[in-house]
């Protein structure tokens, strides 16, 4: 995970781009709720691996991109990402030591924070229930090993 590679920035934006594409892939309405927040998982991966390079500022920019991408109130994803990544960056040394399973569980809490922030903001304009926002937390926990292993592979290959 600490392996140094020179084109990390390129891989960073590529992986964020792929995560964004996964977010907007058209799916039946019923299964949309099950989609984990791919972008947040990728951001967490990078802030765990290289906290000094991929910090809050980049996460804020990505959040704004996501807001424009989904045609939402500007700043909601930015706020959610910034708050959850702050937690990750605070504890990144500890979280890095965990096994993947443990990491997933800890990240579950962080994903929960992000989704609750999103829910609060979305709730201003939309009448929806919190349950729609809890599925991404669960699927996020399940998908974290996948994201982690894939990105590790990609980084060692390139």
């Amino acid at each position: 995970m600490l392996r140094i590679s020179h084109n990390n920035t390129l891989i960073y934006w590529l992986s964020v781009g792929v995560a964004m594409a996964l977010t907007i892939i058209p799916l039946p309405f019923a299964s949309l709720n099950l989609m984990p927040d791919w972008v947040l998982l990728v951001l967490i991966y990078w802030s765990l691996g290289r906290p000094e390079d991929f910090n809050i500022d980049k996460a804020w920019c990505v959040g704004i991109l996501i807001d424009v991408l989904s045609g939402q109130l500007l700043g909601q994803h930015a706020l959610a990402y910034v708050m959850s990544l702050f937690l990750v960056l605070k504890q990144h040394k500890m979280i890095r030591q965990f096994s993947i399973i443990q990491q997933s569980l800890v990240l579950g809490l962080i994903l929960f924070v992000a989704q609750v922030v999103l829910f609060w903001i979305v709730h201003i304009n939309h009448d929806i229930s919190l349950s729609a926002f809890l599925w991404p937390v669960l699927t996020g926990i399940l998908c974290w090993p996948l994201v982690f292993i894939t990105l590790n592979k990609v980084r060692t290959l390139l």
Binding site: D57, W60, G63, L73, L74, G75, L79, I121
Partner: peptide
């Protein structure tokens, strides 16, 4: 800092 900026952007856009 980023949090404040987000909240600012949120309220302007709202």
């Amino acid at each position: 800092m980023a949090v404040l900026l987000s909240i600012l952007v949120l309220s302007i856009d709202q």
